[in-house]
Amino acid sequence: MTDGRLTAVAPLPIRGPVFSAGEPGLIVESVDFADFYREERSALVGFVISHGASPPEASDAVQVAFAAVLPPRWETIRDPRAYLRVAALRAYYRSAPCAAAVVEEVPEPAGWSPPLDPVEVDEGARWVISALATLPWKQRQVMAWYIDGYSYAEIAKMLRIPVPAVRKNFSRARQALQDYYFGQQREAG
């Protein structure tokens, strides 16, 4: 990715939702717990990492979340993708309460510009994950849900903020990533 263009990718490598879009709470399709674990575990770990956890912390939080929804309780979970994301985040915050307290209490200043760390732009786009972790808290939250395939409306519901706030935070996060990416491209000549 040295010519300023993005590498073409296969369509939708993000794991798709197990439950198709229906009425909230409607069970559309049952799924085996072990199959779901194999399919979603790594995406869940990535989701928690996007919120600032280290890989071991994220992995542990996801294990805790899965352990809490083992069958027969598994059969009662109506949207396991969303449920487990929230549960894993809570498990992470319980293990790192200081982090949760800080990010919830410190407001984002107006006109704030995210201080992205100088992570190297690579072809595999891994830099995006590192850069996401340096965004302001709300932007990071919004992007973490967005990258996992959730719509603005769904994110707003999850984060309990208005849809316009989701759009604003998404736009700022995108701008920050964009500035960083093209800045690196210019410096590379």
């Binding site: 993005l6 994950i129 992007m143 990533l177 964009q178 500035d179 800045g183």
Partner: peptide, 25 residues
Amino acid sequence: MTSRSADFHFADDEFEALLRQARAR
């Protein structure tokens, strides 16, 4: 952190592809 530039930006589909590529990796 670089300054913002109006000359360079991701197209919507490019940004979507970038995010998906990053998460897939």
